[in-house]
Structures are given as C-alpha cells and as structure tokens.
C-alpha cells in the first residue's frame, strides 16, 4: 500500500453550478393551477379507484389511467417527526425552534401528504389528530401556496 502521505494531490473547486429546467408534465401543471385557486388536486385511477397526491396520469403501467380530482382539505395526521435540524443544499444545520412535520391523509385519499404542522406544541403531537390546510393569502400557483396544516377544530 502506498503511504497516504506520499500521495500528492490538489483539491479543486469548480466555482459554478449547472442549471436545469425540469418539465412538469400535465398532472403537476394541473396540481399547481389548483393551488392558485386554493384547491388540492389529486388523481384517481379509473380502474382501481385509488386517489393519490401528487397526481399522475397512470396508476402504474399495470393499472388504469388516472383522472384529476379535487380532494378534501381536511385530514388525519398519520405520521410525524419533530425536526431539530434542517438540511440546506446537503448541509445540516440546527433550527431555532423545533419544526413539526406531518404525513397527512386527506379525507378520501389513499396517500399521505407531507406538510408542516403549525400551531401545535411538539409534545402534544400524536397520530390521529385532525388537521386542515392553511393557504397563503394570495396564492400564485406555486407549491408553497399550501403553506401548512393546523389543527382542525
């Protein structure tokens, strides 16, 4: 084996990033148009009846085509985690206040949506809580129009 100290190398940084523009496709386009109207769009399989978010046009190749449907904005918290860190561009850093992230089953859907849950004490979070969507005041047809979820009264 070569002694590590004999290895001569330089550490090179490439001072640029490469940019891409990923095409959304129709179902996600429709999802975002729904956001602009404060609607949550999912897709429903014409064969097995499954309703899922994010929407897509096929329910796997084996099953049926999917059509866009609007789904309920109230749901049940099925899973959660309390974040003491965040990851930005692959680097982890602590957060000032713990953040509650939940996996929410919106009523009538067969999938869970990940969102932030606000207005609840992290110690009180538990599976089964009823939550509802909270929107940005003026939605712009972007993903973060659906700002977070809060406890449904």
């Amino acid at each position: 084996m070569v002694n590590q100290s004999e290895v001569e190398f330089v550490e090179t940084i490439v001072p640029m990033d490469f940019n891409y523009n990923i095409r959304a496709g129709k179902p996600i386009e429709d999802y975002l148009r729904g956001m602009a109207q404060k609607k949550i769009m999912g897709s429903k399989c014409t064969k097995c009846g499954k309703v899922v978010i994010p929407p897509r046009n096929v329910c796997g190749v084996a099953c049926g085509k999917m059509e866009m449907v609007e789904v309920d904005q109230t749901g049940t918290l099925q899973n959660y985690t309390i974040g003491h860190v965040k990851i930005t561009k692959g680097l982890m850093e602590p957060v000032e206040e713990p953040v509650v992230l939940g996996m929410i089953q919106l009523d009538g859907t067969n999938s869970l949506l990940v969102s932030e849950i606000r207005g609840v004490d992290p110690k009180q979070v538990k599976k089964g809580l009823r939550v509802k969507a909270v929107w940005k005041e003026s939605p712009e047809g972007k993903f973060d129009d659906l700002a977070y979820f809060e406890l449904a009264s």
């Binding site: 001569e8 550490e11 940084i13 490439v14 490469f18 523009n21 095409r23």
Partner: peptide, 25 residues
C-alpha cells in the same frame, strides 16, 4: 400536448471538493 411549466433545479458541482492527483502536473 399543451405546454407545461418548467422548474429550475441545480446540480451544485461547486459543492464538490475534487481531489486531483498533482505530482505530474
């Protein structure tokens, strides 16, 4: 079909610290 929007994403190559053998150089 109808045009759909695009999303900007990045390949952060600047985050890499490439090790390049340099004796020959």
């Amino acid at each position: 079909g109808e045009e759909t929007r695009t999303f900007p994403i990045t390949w952060d190559v600047s985050a890499n610290k490439y090790k390049i053998e340099s004796r020959g150089l």
